[in-house]
Amino acid sequence: MSRHATPVRSRLSASQVLGELLLTVGVLLLLFAFYEAYWTNLNSARLQSQADEQLAERWGEDDSGERVNPRQKLTPELGEAFARMYIPSFGSDFQFAIVEGTEDADLMAGPGRYTTTQMPGEAGNFAVAGHRVGKGAPFNDLDNLEVCDAIVVETSTEWVTYRILPIDSDGDARRAEAAECLTPEQAERVTTGDYAGVLGRHITLPGDIEVISPVPGGPEAAPTDGLEGLITLTTCHPQFSNAERMIVHAMEVESTPKIPGQRPAVLEET
């Protein structure tokens, strides 16, 4: 039986197109999840590694033999790495080069310093923002920090050790916790003095810029004499939301000069 030579024309049915569109949207969503969970982390890892190399070069850590002028510029340029942070309780491989600035472009490479705050090792507040999800997620696990955990910051000339302040205790309990790792004078200031309201970790609203003041909660003015050195870390909260911010405060307890080839013992803490 001969076939008619009419071309078979398939008609796109509406339900078929709709079905395929829905499938396409589903694939796009999966690809976006892949992007956030994997692709940005690859990109940020590359940027962080570049920042770290810049730092190593500037500090003369490679074998180029050139000793860099130890008198650094007072303020690094935006996007430029100027220090490293380590959190020993997160493992010996937890370290990030800190860049200057908190714009999106700066934070792609790693944690970034609020430019209006103080530098590591100075009296006042060294405040740093970092991503919690994606882009390397340096601050993903900040909710696992405990009182007196160390945050170590390496600069061109010194190692500065900060200890997480008491988080949710009051009065004598707060003093007892503070006394575990702070000096008696610091423990007193943290319990009854000017740092009594500074919590090791708390949740606040975006726009609460007083957390980066020289004394958190106080005025944003320049630091006065006799202040302790603090480090403040900020990230978003809850994990995938921008509704709030998680703020971590730690107080400087020690600062030792950098000796080439030597790493301070605090980095080996667990």
Binding site: E36, Y114, H131, N242
Partner: peptide, 16 residues
Amino acid sequence: VFPWVTTLMPYNDVAV
């Protein structure tokens, strides 16, 4: 496309 979409996402706001 996704870098642009990401700027619209809430979990990127980490600064106060």
